[in-house]
């Protein structure tokens, strides 16, 4: 009697794979759909977990685009504090697919995109990236100027990118009622103040996430841009939910939607691929889960496994450079702790 599971590769069977983190197992985890090499122009974006990938790719000598480079002027600590060189431009953490779509729309717009400004203690913040100026700016005009320069710097990155490495973090997001803009964080955490008449919570659905990602791709194509997407899902649980649910099920919903949307796009659309960083950190498949004692932040060991898996799937050369990069990261972790606006929510809750 024949079975469709006969003669499948080892990687198809749980018992053969689970708990292994050897090179062979890592190499089998992901079969890249997109052709990536060290010379491929990459753009990185996403939630705080995406910073790990960005840093490792840069250190590994990959062609990571940088529209607002400050590495020649500032020490790492200040780059981190002011949102420089965390991603391919200074857009800060991007948690939702809607935020990324909005960013691309703004960068490619022929007219000046809207600017949403928050105030706190006489200082002014760009509501779409409030953490990049931790002290805020002196006037609203300075915020506008800074945003205009940011948009100007972002456009060439989009134009050059062959692959956008996008790490999706959340489905819950706050929307400004007047402008319809998707915000990275609720007003009242970093700056601004919470007014239910001004903002509302939206928990994006699977269909909305897919629609936003496809719309982003379509927009790029409409401008003659060729970038394809390598999607990952951040394994970092929600620090808080405003959905009314328990944070546990709310996290499961959010990650499930993002994972399912990424999977569906990867299965059905040639412009999207999915890299299983989420599975490495959260499941026992590679010996995990790899979370710290609070069950939230990925451990260094887990992050390094992610980078090893990424490199191994792309070939020996990539593997070596990414492992080297991840080692370097461990040595300088004090200087480069992951910036995450979500942490502010936690602090705010104390």
């Amino acid at each position: 009697m024949k079975s469709p599971y006969q003669n499948l590769e080892e990687r198809a069977f749980w018992r053969a794979c689970v708990g292994r983190d050897d090179d062979n197992a890592l190499a089998q985890l992901w079969s890249p759909k997109l052709e990536l090499g060290r010379a491929t122009p990459l753009m990185t974006a996403g939630s705080c977990f995406a910073q790990h990938l960005h840093r490792a790719l840069v250190r590994g000598g990959w062609n990571v685009l940088q529209g607002e480079d400050m590495s020649a002027h500032l020490p790492n600590r200040l780059c981190q504090r002011y949102g420089y060189n965390l991603f391919s431009a200074r857009y800060g953490n991007i948690y939702t697919a809607r935020q990324f779509r909005q960013l691309v729309e703004h960068a490619l717009a022929d007219t000046a995109p809207p600017v949403l400004i928050w105030e706190k203690d006489g200082r002014y913040f760009d509501a779409l990236r409030p953490a990049v100026e931790p002290e805020g700016l002196g006037t609203a005009d300075e915020v506008r100027q800074s945003r205009a320069e940011h948009m100007l710097a972002l456009r060439p990155v989009l134009e050059q990118a062959a692959c956008i490495v996008l790490t999706l973090g959340l489905t819950e997001g706050w929307i400004d009622r007047d402008t319809g803009l998707a915000l990275p964080t609720a007003p009242g955490t970093i700056a601004g103040s919470y007014d239910p008449d001004q903002v509302f919570l939206h928990n994006f659905t699977h269909a909305e996430v897919i629609a936003d990602l496809r719309a982003t791709r379509d927009l790029l194509r409409a401008h003659g841009l060729q970038a394809r997407f390598l999607l990952t899902v951040s394994p970092v649980p929600l620090v808080a939910t405003a959905s009314g649910d328990h944070v546990g099920p709310a996290t499961t919903y959010s990650k499930s939607v993002l994972r399912a949307a990424s999977g569906e796009l990867s299965m059905t659309d040639g412009d999207f691929d999915y890299f299983p960083a989420y599975e490495i950190i959260t499941s026992p498949i590679m010996g995990g889960p790899y979370f710290d004692q609070y069950g939230r932040q990925a451990t260094d060991e887990g992050v390094q496994l992610v980078l090893r898996a990424f490199g191994h799937a792309l070939g020996e050369d990539a593997s070596a450079t990414l492992e080297k990069a991840s080692t370097a990261r461990a040595a300088t972790s004090t200087d480069e702790e992951t910036i995450c606006e979500e942490i502010l929510l936690e602090a705010f809750n104390k």
Binding site: E68, L74, R81, Y82, E133, E135, E142, E149, L152, A153
Partner: peptide, 12 residues
Amino acid sequence: ARSVSLALISDY
């Protein structure tokens, strides 16, 4: 072509 904040200058 690009600007930095005065706060960054002080921090630097």
